[in-house]
C-alpha cells in the first residue's frame, strides 16, 4: 500500500495499549501459538500471504486484528486442519 493516496490524515494519538478488545488479544495469542506449532511459519510469510489474499474491498473494511483473524481462518481451512462444524 506504499504510496497509495486518499487515505486522509493520520490519527496521531495513541493510548499505548497492545489491544483494544479482549478478542484482539485472543487472536494475537492464537496466531503466535500457531506460529510456534509451525502452522504459521516462523517468518509469518504464509499468514501475510493470506492477509494479502483477502479480497481488496473486504481488506479495506477490516481492522488490523480482523485481518489477522480472517487470514488465520483462511489458512486453517486451506490446510484442512479443523474439523467441519
Amino acid at each position: 500500500m506504499g504510496g497509495q493516496t486518499g487515505f486522509g490524515p493520520i490519527a496521531a494519538d495513541d493510548d499505548g495499549q497492545f489491544f483494544h478488545a479482549d478478542w484482539e488479544a485472543r487472536v494475537y495469542a492464537v496466531v503466535r501459538t500457531l506460529q510456534r506449532r509451525g502452522v504459521i511459519n516462523k517468518e509469518f510469510d504464509n499468514l501475510r500471504d493470506a492477509i494479502e489474499r483477502i479480497p481488496p474491498a473486504e481488506y479495506l473494511s477490516l481492522s488490523y486484528y480482523e485481518r489477522w483473524l480472517r487470514a488465520t481462518e483462511m489458512l486453517l481451512a486451506e490446510k484442512g486442519l479443523l474439523a467441519d462444524d
Binding site: G2, G3, D45, R48, D49, E52, R53
Partner: peptide, 9 residues
C-alpha cells in the same frame, strides 16, 4: 502471483 516483498511502488 502471490506474496512478494517487492512493493509496487
Amino acid at each position: 502471483e502471490g506474496h512478494t516483498r517487492l512493493p509496487r511502488y
